[in-house]
């Protein structure tokens, strides 16, 4: 643990204490539960994007992938549009759909050599298009008991979604810490040339990382569907940017090679506590995106200050 890693948790504590002092509403048990519930989907999406950022790439596809997976799951579980009732299998399919989109991003990056921000911008548009096709003008409302209960029922005070998010973070951390995929994602971000020269074929790992990220977005789309009780094309609106903000604020560098799932978890809490707290002290919720925009720019700027002299070329 260096002082760099201690920054985000310290900021989280400070922000929490400040808001708790300002607003009695904020420090209530109910509100803490709200914060954790609001953080659940963002945590899952951020977990996925963290692996991509660790490689030094970027992923703007979350919104499109989540829309497609939300529509997939809502049309496959019990719903008002058709007679499907696949239950848990539908969730698996939706996650696979997400993984498929992620895989396409990875393939475009590796084989077509399209920079990731462009490839994922394209994939996001494709995902939204596919979602719109499935939506077909009639909103699918879900009636599947299990999926609906995820957002409502609580275990030890937190909704099932929060526990799913916690499980995802643990899985993400295990992948990052103990699998070749996780270690290579770090190494690709740190020094891709060195890795290539050492004889490692990085391409399959890059595709795998994007696929993994896509699977997390797919699950995120399912969780949003559970919250809304319906499949919407806009299920993932804003999550792509919020997830990047959360990861960056948590200490993951956009240049890659630093950060991780646990950093991102702190970042998610920072973003959610900040947005929740600002609303509690009376700031218009419309500012939410603006605040995230400011903190992402500030966090990236703060992260590059030590390397200012070294990096003369910034695109």
């Amino acid at each position: 643990m260096s002082w760099r890693d201690a920054g985000p948790p310290a900021a989280l504590v400070v922000i929490f204490v400040v808001f708790a002092a300002l607003s009695s509403q904020f420090r209530s048990i109910d509100n803490v539960q709200n914060i954790m519930d609001a953080a659940a989907v963002l945590a899952v999406v951020t977990c996925g994007i963290t692996f991509v950022l660790m490689m030094g790439s970027i992923d703007l596809s979350a919104a499109g992938v989540m829309g497609a997976s939300a529509l997939t799951v809502s049309l496959l579980v019990a719903n008002n549009r058709n007679d499907n009732d696949l239950g848990i299998l539908a969730i698996g399919v939706a996650v696979l759909v997400g993984a498929g989109f992620g895989c396409v991003s990875g393939l475009a990056l590796v084989f077509l050599k399209v920079p990731s921000f462009m490839a994922t911008l394209g994939v996001s548009a494709v995902g939204l298009g596919v979602a719109t096709l499935m939506f077909a003008g009639v909103q699918p409302n879900i009636s599947d008991a299990m999926l609906k209960s995820w957002a409502i029922e609580r275990f030890l005070g937190f909704s099932h979604l929060t526990w799913i998010a916690a499980a995802c973070l643990v899985v993400g951390w295990l992948i990052q810490r103990y699998t070749r995929l996780g270690r290579y994602a770090f190494a690709i971000g740190g020094a891709e040339e060195v890795l290539t020269l050492s004889g490692v074929r990085v391409q399959p790992y890059k595709i795998a990382v994007f696929t993994l990220a896509g699977a997390f977005y797919g699950l995120g789309g399912v969780m949003v569907t559970s919250q809304l009780g319906a499949g919407l094309v806009q299920a993932g609106d804003g999550y792509d940017f919020s997830a990047i903000t959360a990861a960056v604020v948590g200490g993951t560098l956009l240049t890659g090679g630093r950060g991780g799932v646990l950093h991102s978890a702190v970042g998610v809490l920072l973003v959610v506590v900040l947005t929740n707290g600002l609303v509690q002290v009376g700031v218009s919720p419309y500012w939410q995106g603006g605040v995230q925009g400011l903190i992402v720019v500030a966090a990236v700027a703060a992260a590059v200050i030590p390397q200012r002299r070294r990096n003369q070329v910034v695109k």
Partner: peptide
């Protein structure tokens, strides 16, 4: 912001995008 703070242009403008949307909404 891009030049002085040495932030990649897509991050500056992505941040700008959500700030402008927020301003427009408010």
């Amino acid at each position: 912001a891009h030049v002085l703070l040495r932030i990649p242009s897509f991050i500056v403008t992505l941040g700008g995008m959500s700030i402008f949307s927020a301003v427009a909404l408010v």
